[in-house]
Amino acid sequence: MDAVLSAKGIAKSYGRGDSAQNIINGFDLEVDQGAFVSLVGPSGCGKTTLLMILSGLLSPDSGQIFFKGKAVKQTPHGLAVVFQDYSRSLLPWKTNIENVLFGMRRVVGLDERQKRDEAERILQAVGLSGFEKHHPWQISGGMQQRVAIARGLASQSELLLLDEPLAAVDAQTRADMQDLLRDLARKFKQTCVLVTHDVDEAVYMADRVLVLGPRPTKVVRDITVDLPKDRDQISTRESPSFLAARHEVLSLIRSMRKQPSPQ
């Protein structure tokens, strides 16, 4: 199978001279068609910078990103980003359906009517029927993030890059959204790369968990999660293979944790 997304030898640092901060060094990645990959690492290891580079929003100092075999210079068509900060990533002057339609600006071959139908269908898929004409600020945080996901799907994405999409929603909503995301990934045939700091979430969502090291970060371990496609918040989380994977990731991350020191 061909890799949908691959990264080779990515390095990135901010600043210059003595104050230069090495964020990423020697990062490699291969994501296969239809895979669900989690990137998890200790806090402050540069996860968001990494995702910005993978999506083509930030160029690396060295190394290259390939999306479906083509080098990535800017965000390519077929790649959608879902940001953590949904309240800022949605446009407050547009209604929910207008926000989704906004994601379809590069979609060709559909007229306005068909686009609207498609947007309605996707909003229904994320469970937001009846909220088309609401504005993002009129609905809860979890629902806003669903609009953002819908916008990504509407752009005819094949690859979803998810930057801590559930970090800002409450625990109950979070569990529901995790299941919804897995459903959507299958229904819309999406390859997913999820960046998260939550180890349980990383394991529960993914087929593969990549553990990132401290700065300058790179993949320090590649763990295949041995869980069935159909997962359940209660039984999956109690299964031995879930616990084993969780144990492995968690102990690895804990071993990398530094003692806090006053700057």
Binding site: M52, S55, V81, F83, S89
Partner: peptide, 18 residues
């Protein structure tokens, strides 16, 4: 304009004028 909105615009492949 919040940098997040810039990112969104770029991730949706919008041109400068758009």
């Amino acid at each position: 304009v919040h940098p997040m909105m810039n990112r969104v615009a770029r991730s949706l492949q919008l041109g400068k004028f758009e």
